[in-house]
């Protein structure tokens, strides 16, 4: 469980996060949604320790991040898996080397054991014939799957995904969503996803945090989001006619 208490973050005097508090639960897919500039990425990067909030606390199963020493912070980070928006695979490494990287860095496993684990997670993300390919030689959807495999190879307790569906076709986007949800349940990890994709919200949003202008404007789950009359949420989520009709159909049922 990740608990966020009243965090604030500014850049050049411009306050981006204005005192956000929430809880991201274990074994669930927690989604952060909101318009561009609402503070989603800053919140995610603050959770990851890339940005340091000016006030407030972030605790990982009771461990308050700002109170940890540098070694403890690095130790905690080895429990984190991250899927970046652009996948952030290492260009000079093959798919198998990318996936095995956290194991080579942080475990004493021999090459055979690392290879077995790499084979296992690549099979888990349905990539069995791309081991020796470079990231530039595979499609965007495959890159995302490699990024997910790299993020889970070390059995993380926390999985963060920044726009995992961006730039993907609808079929691949659904595959990636389902994969993340299955992995979250299978390994009982705390997953936090930053997304713009309303399909993801409706499909896998077990907990949804809606941000507006750096503030928590609403939180709930995928069922509650259909019934909410929060104007900001309705204006954002149901901005397209398709989703308006989906909502109407849901409410009629």
């Amino acid at each position: 469980m990740i608990e966020v208490k009243n965090i604030e973050k500014s850049f050049n005097g411009n306050k981006i996060l204005k005192g956000i508090s929430t809880v991201f639960e274990t074994g669930k897919t927690n989604l952060i949604i909101g318009q561009s500039g609402s503070g989603k990425t800053v919140l995610l990067k603050s959770l990851l320790g890339i940005h340091t909030p000016e006030s407030g606390t972030i605790s990982f199963d009771g461990r308050i991040y700002s109170e940890l020493n540098p070694d403890e912070k690095r130790e905690l980070r080895t429990e984190i898996g991250m899927v970046f928006q652009g996948s952030a695979l290492f260009d000079s490494m093959t798919v198998a080397e990318n996936v095995g990287f956290p194991l080579r860095m942080f475990t004493k496993d021999n090459n055979k054991k690392i290879q077995e684990r790499v084979d296992f997670v690549l099979k888990r993300v349905a990539l069995t014939d791309a081991h020796k390919k470079l990231p530039s030689e595979i499609s965007g959807g495959m890159q995302k799957r490699v990024a997910i495999a790299r993020a889970i190879v070390n059995n993380p307790k926390y999985l963060f995904c920044d726009e995992p569906n961006s730039g993907l076709d609808p079929n691949t986007a659904i595959l990636i969503d389902n994969l993340i949800k299955e992995i979250t349940e299978e390994y009982n990890i705390t997953t936090v996803i930053n997304t713009h994709d309303m399909n993801s919200v409706m499909e896998i949003g077990e907990k949804i945090l809606f941000l507006k202008d750096g503030l928590k404007a609403w939180e709930g789950n995928k069922d509650e989001i259909f019934r909410t009359d929060n104007e900001a949420v309705v204006a954002f989520v149901y901005s397209s006619n398709l989703f308006k009709k989906v909502r109407e159909a849901y409410l009629k049922e």
Partner: peptide, 18 residues
């Protein structure tokens, strides 16, 4: 610089690598 732009350095840091 390219590693910075493509978030590869962030990926290293998030993993706990110096």
């Amino acid at each position: 610089g390219t590693m910075r732009v493509t978030e590869q350095i962030d990926a290293l840091e998030v993993m706990g690598v110096n």
